[in-house]
Amino acid sequence: MHDLVIFDCDGVLVDSEPLSNQVLVDNLGRYGLDLTLEDSVGFFLGGTMVGVRDKARALGANLPDDWVDEVYAETYERLRGGVELMPGVADLLSTLDEKGIAYCVASNGSPDKMQITLGQNGLWGRLSKVAFSAHVLGTAKPDPTMFLTAAKRFNATAPVVIEDSQNGVTAAIRADMRCLAYAPQGNARKLADLGAQVFTDMADVPSLLGI
């Protein structure tokens, strides 16, 4: 049985990806790069903001040196306006609590972002001490370090990762961990091809975990 569940944050615990990507679309449009929401998700999902900056510049955006700080401020403002938990997450966490299975969150996003999104949904108090961020560790997915660090913290011998991005799945596979890929809106084939077991409903996770 798995002794630790490592959740990604954006798009897995909280439905923040549409809002965050709309900020990117709006912002990058001001700098000469016109993208659709679908374009933004396809180019940037699961990456770091530095990676987004570099990709956007390669695509033709004329971004200022302080762009990362600027877009973070705009993103945080939008997220403070309200972001929901992904459907079924609250029940899943309650089930893990009942079964005594540890869980944590590991995100390429910043602690400030997690505090905003998880805090307004009552989860930051439960996860703040077990929140792993690429901004703190200095290395981001698809590097497996964040997942390996989380497993070491919990002395976990059979961790499982729940992800929604190609970078996240790649990091889990590189860490030699089982990966469940949440794909309610599609993208299932790409995630499965990377080695993840795809699911579309959080209610399916307990059976996938064998609990």
Score class of each variant (00 low, 15 high):
Tyr72Ser: 02
Gly122Thr: 05
Pro64His: 05
Asn121Met: 13
Ala102Val: 01
Asp112Cys: 00
Asp91Pro: 08
Ile116Pro: 09
Gly60Cys: 10
Met86Trp: 08
Ala73Val: 00
Leu59Lys: 01
Arg126Gln: 14
Thr117Arg: 06
Val71Ser: 05
Asp65Leu: 12
Ala102Cys: 08
Leu93Arg: 00
Glu70His: 12
Glu84Thr: 04
Gln120Ser: 12
Gly81Asn: 08
Tyr76Met: 09
Ile116Gly: 04
Leu96Ser: 02
Gly100Lys: 02
Leu118Lys: 04
Ile116Ala: 03
Ala90Met: 09
Lys99Leu: 14
Tyr103Pro: 13
Glu70Asn: 08
Gly109Phe: 01
Met86Asn: 05
Leu96Gln: 00
Glu77Lys: 09
Arg126Ile: 10
Ala90Lys: 15
Gln115Trp: 02
Leu93Met: 10
Tyr103Ser: 06
Asp91Phe: 09
Leu93Pro: 03
Thr117Ile: 14
Leu92Val: 02
Trp67Arg: 03
Tyr72Trp: 15
Gly82Ile: 05
Tyr72Asn: 03
Gly60Trp: 09
Ala73Gly: 01
Gln120Gly: 02
Ala90Asn: 05
Ala106Ser: 11
Ser107Tyr: 05
Trp67Ser: 07
Asn108Thr: 01
Thr75Phe: 05
Gly125Cys: 09
Leu92Pro: 04
Ala106Gln: 03
Gly82Gln: 04
Ala73Ile: 02
Asn108Gly: 04
Gly82Glu: 13
Thr117Asn: 11
Trp124Thr: 04
Trp67Asn: 10
Asn62Met: 03
Gln120Arg: 06
Pro64Ser: 06
Gln120Trp: 06
Tyr103Ile: 10
Leu92Asn: 03
Ile101Asp: 13
Cys104Phe: 11
Trp124Ala: 08
Val105Gln: 09
Val71Gly: 03
Val68Trp: 07
Met114Gly: 08
Gly109Glu: 00
Asp69Pro: 02
Val71Lys: 07
Asp91Asn: 10
Asp66Arg: 11
Leu123Phe: 12
Leu118His: 07
Thr75Lys: 14
Pro111Thr: 09
Trp67Pro: 02
Pro111Ile: 12
Glu74Met: 12
Gly82His: 03
Leu93Thr: 02
Ile116His: 00
Lys99Cys: 14
Tyr103Glu: 12
Tyr72Lys: 05
Ser94Arg: 15
Asp66Leu: 13
Tyr76Gln: 07
Glu98Tyr: 00
Leu93Cys: 06
Asp66Met: 13
Arg80Ser: 10
Ser107Asn: 04
Gly119Ala: 01
Ala73Met: 06
Tyr103Leu: 11
Gly81Ile: 08
Leu85Tyr: 12
Ala61Asn: 06
Lys113Asp: 05
Asp66Pro: 14
Glu98Cys: 02
Asn121Arg: 14
Glu98Thr: 00
Asn62Asp: 15
Ser110Glu: 11
Ser107Gln: 00
Ala73Leu: 07
Ile101Pro: 14
Tyr72His: 12
Ser110Thr: 15
Glu74Ile: 04
Leu96Cys: 06
Thr95Leu: 15
Leu96Glu: 02
Glu98Met: 04
Val89Leu: 15
Val89Met: 13
Glu84Asn: 14
Leu96Ile: 03
Asp97Lys: 08
Gln115His: 08
Glu84Leu: 11
Tyr103Gln: 05
Glu70Ala: 14
